[in-house]
Design a protein around this nucleic acid. Structure first.
Length: 450
DNA sequence: GCATGATCATGC
DNA sequence: GCATGATCATGC
């Protein structure tokens, strides 16, 4: 007989009892054999199946025939999500948390409070398992569980932001722009692509243009925040800036706007500080001051995958410097496909906050303004072609053939190590300078509207 | 020790 | 003047 859960407490108790265990620990030989044959049949490590197995063997539920990835007991939605080991933080979330598909046709008639999304995901039992390379579904060890309530258990500011994110996504669909959705559009709740290959499309209500299928998702960094702050209770190096009743972008606007047009000296004077232009990260320090977080990181930026980038325009308004990203691993890029590459992830999931200074006389700078920006979906194809060119050059071992700034209007590859001796191994076994993808200065300048 | 954001330096 | 190569220095 399947177990009946009368209360959510019983459910959470069972989840807790499963911590530090893996499925192998709670299955008998016959179950294991059957599961393994299923895994073989369905393809290796199908994640939806992990959920089914947990439902079946941790919570003793009868599996339904519909093979749904999501399952619900006592009004609680159960979700499993992977974490990975992290060098300094212990653990970090490995992926975004994906909810159900967005039905473009019907969602436009909904409103947040009574949305099908909320209906299904009001209360979630999140179960974090430790992903380790080479392990199978039955071997993953579950480490933490957490009650996730996107309305009542997050701060009022987060709840408001999540609602606004949902409304932004649905609004874009209403306007016939489902094909232009991007995860970087929003802050905490995103619309992530969900298809095995990019040829799969769906129709959308207010336009004939086919759109990629997408699902609502919670940003990877938001999960990370939950893991660090709520579960691991790590010493906090972040500080919230959101003002009551305001979204993130409204808050940033209200913090930064008063300084627009001021010189570095004037900004510092308003804090009773003096210029030390020789200090490195001087302008970043100014930006942090204006945002009200002189010593910590901005909590909302951490949670929302927002990268603040300080850019400095020349006196004539030109932008000279391209924007760099972390260096890439030559061995990884040849193994990866565009869709799961780090570069694609950076462009699709990140939001940028550009804090713009302009050079003035005598090494002074003036705060020109700021701009939230995310990589436009329409430019992804070009980024993909640059990435593929890079991959093919690395595969051949032809490093001088890596894409140059003149090869694409958007991105290129350039060295990015501490110095010329900062090298890593290539698939050919040789050592090569660390390099990374850069977004062309000219492209950024245009994106900023200059 | 090292990744990262930012900028400098060089050569065409 | 621009493309590309190279390095600096903070902060973790």
């Amino acid at each position: 007989m399947p177990r009946r859960y009368a209360t959510k407490q019983q459910l959470f108790d069972d989840a807790l009892a499963f911590m530090d265990k893996c499925l192998l620990d709670v299955m008998d030989a016959k179950d294991i054999k059957e599961a393994k044959s299923n895994i073989e049949k369905y393809g290796r490590n199908r994640k939806g199946y992990l959920g089914n197995l947990v439902e079946q063997y941790v919570f003793d539920q009868e599996i339904n025939s519909r093979h749904e990835a999501d399952f619900k007991i006592a009004g609680v939605e159960l979700k499993t999500t992977p974490i990975k080991r992290h060098r300094s933080k212990g653990y970090a979330s490995k992926e975004r948390l994906v909810f159900s598909m967005i039905d473009y046709m019907s969602v436009i008639a909904e409103k947040w409070e009574t949305s099908s999304f909320l209906e299904k995901n009001k209360l979630i039992l999140l179960m974090f398992y430790l992903f380790e390379e080479g392990l199978g579904l039955l071997d993953y060890r579950f480490k933490f569980c957490y009650e996730l309530d996107l309305v009542n258990k997050v701060s009022p500011e987060d709840a408001l932001q999540i609602k606004k994110d949902w409304e932004y996504i649905v609004g874009k669909i209403r306007q016939g722009q489902a094909h232009l959705l991007s995860e970087g559009d929003t802050f905490y709740l995103g619309a992530c692509t969900k298809a095995s290959d990019s040829s799969v499309t769906r129709r959308q209500p207010s336009s004939d243009i086919p759109a990629k299928p997408r699902a609502f998702s919670l940003k990877q960094n938001y999960l990370n925040y939950i893991l660090q702050e709520k579960i691991l209770g790590a010493e906090s190096d972040i500080q919230p800036i959101t003002e009551k009743g305001k979204t993130i972008s409204d808050t940033v606007k209200s913090k930064l706007s008063p300084f627009v047009g001021m010189s570095d000296k004037e900004i510092l004077a308003s804090f009773g500080l003096k210029a030390n232009r020789k200090a490195k990260q001087y302008k970043r320090m100014l930006a942090n001051l204006m945002l009200g977080v002189p010593t910590k990181k901005v909590e909302e930026f951490e949670k929302a995958n927002i990268t603040m980038r300080v850019v400095t325009l020349e006196e004539n308004g030109n932008l000279k410097e391209s924007i760099s990203f972390p260096y890439f691993d030559y061995n990884e890029i040849v193994r990866q496909k565009w869709n799961d590459s780090e570069f694609a992830q950076l462009l699709e999931e990140n939001k940028f906050l550009f804090v713009i200074f302009r050079k003035g006389e005598d090494a002074s700078v003036r705060f020109e303004g700021f701009r939230f920006w995310n990589f436009p979906a329409g430019d992804l194809a070009e980024a993909e072609s640059v990435w593929k060119k890079a991959k093919s050059a690395v595969k051949k071992g032809d490093y001088p053939a890596l894409p140059k700034i003149s090869d694409s209007p958007i991105a290129h590859v350039r060295p990015h190590g501490r110095n010329g001796n900062d090298k890593i191994r290539t698939p050919q076994g040789t050592m090569e300078m660390k390099r990374c993808f850069w977004l062309n200065a000219d492209y950024i300048r245009k994106s900023l509207g200059n």
